[in-house]
């Protein structure tokens, strides 16, 4: 192993080690000096995860979170210097991390938080004008074939747990009051998107999630609405469309070959 490889491996080693070939002006043992680098590397990565997963941190406590994040960072250090998006795979790590096995909702909560970060930094796109949508809704011939391009920030999460309610309960200074009323075992779906400069996270029902997912895949409006209704006859198309329009989620619209922005 060459000297650089040894240095790099010692930075992320679980136990404090010091690579060979280091010297100090006063002959002091280099371990303590090398530990400054070890510390900077892991603290920086743990801080990045703490910034991106603040509710996950609150749910397990700061000390536990930092220990868990350090484990993850050592096993899965970033591959890119763009740390704003570091945290891919953290939810899967949590899912398989025995000490939090009892918190079955924690991994999905981390997924939701990663989506929030991704939405925050996603590309910008202007929304289709509301009047264009209104005109389309009046055009019974064109409507079923219309295809939408969703805003690049749009993310969907379908969870077996009430992770959106859990997340929302931690957005105020005193989260404990509403926490007690959340049944974490009730399934929830989330729509995550950036509206202007703010990321919005809404609970949507399963049928709405199906509808939006199909639109996002570029499927025709009629097909998406039909599948949502098949999944749940109570699917409220008007309400779901209203949510998408209000939150600027519809970035482009194609009607039988023509594009209307």
């Amino acid at each position: 192993m060459n000297a650089r490889q040894a240095f790099a491996e010692a930075l992320l080693a679980a136990e404090p080690v010091c690579p060979p070939g280091l010297t100090t002006w006063n002959g002091s043992a280099p371990e303590k000096r090398f530990a400054v680098y070890r510390n900077t590397v892991t603290v920086g990565l743990v801080d990045a995860l703490a910034d991106s997963f603040p509710v996950t941190l609150q749910l397990v406590g700061e000390d536990f979170f930092r220990a868990m994040a350090r484990e993850f960072a050592r096993q899965t250090p970033p591959r890119s210097p763009v740390l704003a998006l570091y945290g891919d795979g953290f939810a899967e790590f949590i899912e398989a991390f025995p000490p939090v096995a009892a918190l079955s909702y924690l991994a999905d909560l981390a997924r939701l938080e990663l989506m929030r970060v991704q939405a925050w930094h996603a590309a910008d796109a202007a929304a289709v004008a509301a009047e264009t949508i209104v005109r389309l809704l009046d055009d019974a011939a064109a409507l079923p074939q219309a295809r939408f391009t969703l805003h690049p920030s749009v993310r969907l999460l379908r969870s077996r747990h009430a992770v959106v309610s859990l997340w929302a309960a931690h957005q105020s200074e005193a989260p404990s009051s509403s926490l007690a009323t959340i049944d974490t075992a009730s399934a929830e779906s989330a729509l995550v998107l950036r509206n202007g400069l703010e990321v919005e996270i809404s609970v949507i029902d399963e049928a709405a999630a199906i509808f939006i997912e199909l639109l996002q895949q570029g499927r025709a409006f009629g097909l998406a609405a039909g599948q949502a209704l098949d999944a749940d006859s109570r699917f409220d198309l008007a309400q779901t469309l209203g949510l998408l329009v209000r939150s600027g989620a519809l970035a482009d619209l194609t009607i039988s070959g023509s594009t209307t922005s």
Binding site: R4, L11, G21, T40, A48, P78, S80
Partner: peptide, 15 residues
């Protein structure tokens, strides 16, 4: 700050 495709998130010293 990178080695073998891993980003080490620090400004590390060069001999």
């Amino acid at each position: 700050s990178s080695h073998g495709g891993t980003f080490l998130n620090d400004l590390l010293p060069v001999p």
